[in-house]
C-alpha cells in the first residue's frame, strides 16, 4: 500500500517534469501551430530547422561557444586548482573564496558586471566576441575548479615525488602522473562547463554581439515574435535535443557495470 503510494508520487512528479516536453515532441511531427489541434503528420518543422540558415547558424554558434569556453575553462580551472592546491594557505584561501563568487552570485549580476567592466569602462567591442567568451568562462570555470580539487585531495602525492626522483622533468611528471590521476575531475568539469554554457541566457544577453544569438536568446526573442514557422521549428529543436538526451540516458544505463557518478 505504502509502496504503491511511493510509486504514484514519483510518477506524478516525473509527469510534471516530462509531460510538456513529451507533448511538444509529439506536436513537432505535425503541422499544427498550437497544441490541442492535431491536423496531420508532417516533418515540415524539421525541414525548416535544418535548412533555414538563421537557425543553423544560431545552433552551431551556440555549440562552438560552449566548446570554446569549456576548453578555456578546463585549462584555466585545472591549472588553477593544481596551483591553489600546492599554494600557501593565504593564496589558496583567496582563490577558493574568489572562485565562490560567480557560483553564489545571480547570473544577471555576473553578466551585468562583466558587461559594465569590459564594454562600458574598457570600451571593448561586443563584436570581438571577447566579452561573450570571457563571460562564459567566468560562469563555468569555478565548476571545473570545484570538480578538480577533490581529485587532488585523493591523489597519492608520493608518485609525483617518485617520478621527479627518478629523473622526470616536472612538466613530464605533471603530464604523466598528476593529470591522469585527476582526469575524471577534469572530464566532469568539462561536461559541466558545456552544460552551463548551453543553458545560459543572462550572461549571453549582456555580452553578445547584436547579430549573434545562442539558443537561449534566440528562443526568448522568437516566443515574442509572431513568426509561427520559426516557432514550430523550435519545437523540432526541442524534440531533437530531448531525443538525443534520452538516447544518451539509455546508452549510459545500458552499459553493464558502469559506475554511476552523481556527486
Amino acid at each position: 500500500m505504502k509502496r504503491a503510494g511511493y510509486i504514484i508520487w514519483l510518477i506524478i512528479v516525473l509527469l510534471f517534469l516530462y509531460m510538456p516536453i513529451l507533448m511538444l515532441t509529439v506536436y513537432s511531427f505535425t503541422d499544427s501551430e498550437s497544441m490541442g489541434v492535431i491536423r496531420a503528420f508532417s516533418i515540415e518543422n524539421y525541414k525548416t530547422l535544418f535548412t533555414t540558415p538563421e537557425l543553423r547558424n544560431m545552433i552551431s554558434g551556440t555549440f562552438v561557444l560552449a566548446v570554446v569556453s569549456a576548453v578555456i575553462s578546463v585549462i584555466l580551472g585545472t591549472s588553477g586548482a593544481i596551483g591553489a592546491f600546492y599554494s600557501k594557505k593565504g593564496a589558496k584561501t583567496f582563490i577558493d573564496s574568489a572562485n565562490q563568487i560567480p557560483v553564489v552570485n545571480a547570473d544577471v549580476v555576473t553578466g551585468f558586471s562583466i558587461c559594465i567592466l569590459l564594454i562600458v569602462v574598457l570600451n571593448m567591442k561586443k563584436e570581438t566576441f571577447i566579452p561573450l567568451i570571457i563571460g562564459h568562462v567566468v560562469l563555468s570555470v569555478p565548476f571545473v575548479y570545484m570538480s578538480v580539487i577533490p581529485r587532488l585531495k585523493q591523489m597519492d602525492d608520493a608518485l609525483y615525488e617518485a617520478a621527479l626522483d627518478m629523473g622526470a622533468k616536472p612538466s613530464a611528471a605533471l603530464r604523466k602522473v598528476i593529470i591522469p590521476q585527476i582526469a575524471p575531475g577534469i572530464f566532469s568539469g568539462f561536461v559541466m562547463a558545456i552544460t552551463l554554457s548551453l543553458d545560459d541566457y543572462f550572461i549571453t544577453t549582456y555580452t553578445k554581439p547584436a547579430t549573434f544569438d545562442t539558443i537561449s536568446t534566440y528562443v526568448v526573442n522568437a516566443t515574442k515574435g509572431a513568426q509561427t514557422q520559426i516557432k514550430t521549428a523550435l519545437w523540432a529543436l526541442s524534440a531533437v535535443i530531448f531525443i538525443l538526451i534520452t538516447l544518451a540516458f539509455i546508452f549510459m544505463n545500458m552499459e553493464p557495470g558502469k559506475e554511476k557518478k552523481n556527486v
Binding site: 516536453i21 539558443i215 528562443v219 526541442s238
Partner: peptide, 8 residues
C-alpha cells in the same frame, strides 16, 4: 535548455 523547456 531552459528556454526550450519553458516554451514547451
Amino acid at each position: 535548455n531552459f528556454t526550450l523547456r519553458i516554451t514547451a
